[in-house]
Design a protein around this nucleic acid. Structure first.
Lengths: 141, 141
DNA sequence: ATGCCTGCAAATTATTTGCATCCCT
DNA sequence: AGGGATGCAAATAATTTGCAGGCAT
């Protein structure tokens, strides 16, 4: 359970990577560091607009791509829907999507991670990244 | 290793489900039963056009949706790309995608399956379906 | 015959891009 | 100043849908 806390200083990291920190980028970075959820581009745009009405959706998309390239965020393509993003600072985890509410629950299993590596190795491959999503419903009590 | 073999008689199953077996549907069914790969709608449309030039892309999309609803095929949304389909007759398996060639390798691990159920249960959920995709590269030998 | 299906074109949704202008560094 | 970044609108890509006519049952 990582306490959201000190809005990771991506600004510094990005700046060092030669990325200009502009107003829209700062706004988007702030939004990403705040919510612990997985918003899509449109939702990020909405939240950003509330802070800076002049921001454009194109810039949101462009920024998400930039941040993804720099490794600052992860892009998720959950079943039937637009890409959803989350900051990359936290440890690796997988997702369980509540099919009724759309809520995303994060979890991690070292055993599953290890098994995946094992399987890939047996097939002669090296994993670069993976996607594990469980889609389910709350168990009736 | 399922020998492709006897083009599963989806026609009968669908007919019994009250679905009309039309020419385009028969063509698409045939294509799905042939290739053991994971074509997207456009690719299916191309193959279908070679057999019946009058078929339309809309019908391919409509048919894929119908077959998905009837449980005859599975829809996969691999990283950044259109949906890709595969017939549902074979046993459940997950996918390893070769990032260099785009090739899709199928595999199955009962241990991973079991671990997923366990994790979901601990979180108070019941899995309806899941997605596990490994993206990797051939190990330099 | 009757109503589900189809092809075609137009509409949607998600995302990208061209271009003139703006503003970080 | 200088060039990357932005907003806006137009362009793409993937998929869906309205409608008039066609075909399976």
């Amino acid at each position: 359970m990582s306490t959201a806390s000190q809005a990771h200083d991506y600004e510094k990291l990005l700046r060092e990577a030669g990325v200009r920190i502009t107003r829209p980028r700062r706004t988007i970075l702030r939004i990403l560091s705040e919510g612990g959820d997985h918003p899509d581009a449109l939702e990020i745009f909405r939240r950003a607009s509330a802070i800076d009405p002049s921001i454009s959706l194109s810039t949101v998309y462009r920024t998400m791509r930039l941040l993804e390239d720099k490794g600052a965020i992860h892009r998720h393509a959950f079943a039937n829907g637009p890409s959803r993003f989350e900051q990359a600072d936290s440890d690796h985890h997988d997702h369980l999507i509540d099919m009724d509410t759309g809520a995303v629950i994060e979890f991690r299993s070292d055993r599953i991670e290890a098994l995946q590596d094992e399987i890939a190795r047996e097939l002669g491959y090296e994993i670069v990244f993976h996607r594990l999503e469980l889609y389910g419903r709350k168990r009736r009590g």
